[in-house]
């Protein structure tokens, strides 16, 4: 599997560290309920199909990527910089 880093181009999967789903970007506000934190940290939709997850370009440029993938076929559909999203990094 290869991921296309928006800054570095297509790179081998081994350059990246998988951190988990995009749920980690939806951090609850201060004072949020335990349930909201549980939802962000532990509970997962876990689709058999298209998913979005966070990858860190560990041995490349060091940026965080939001990758759209298919978990059944391993096809990589899109990659974007987390920092380039509206609101920037979480």
């Amino acid at each position: 599997m290869r991921l296309t880093c928006p800054l570095c181009g297509p790179r081998d999967r081994r350059e990246f560290y998988y951190s988990g789903t995009e749920d980690y970007l939806n951090r609850p506000p201060e004072g949020a309920s335990i349930e909201a934190w549980d939802d962000m940290l532990h509970l997962r939709t876990n689709p058999a199909g298209v998913t979005k997850d966070l990858w860190y370009h560990e041995t490349g440029c060091g940026s965080w990527l939001l990758v759209t993938r298919n978990t059944v076929t391993h096809a990589v559909l899109a990659t974007e910089l987390v920092a380039a999203r509206k609101g920037g990094a979480a």
Partner: peptide, 18 residues
């Protein structure tokens, strides 16, 4: 292996990633 899909039929989100 398919826990999340079956649990979703009952409206549940499990603490599981496959």
């Amino acid at each position: 292996g398919r826990s999340s899909q079956v649990a979703a039929m009952a409206g549940m989100r499990l603490p599981i990633e496959s």
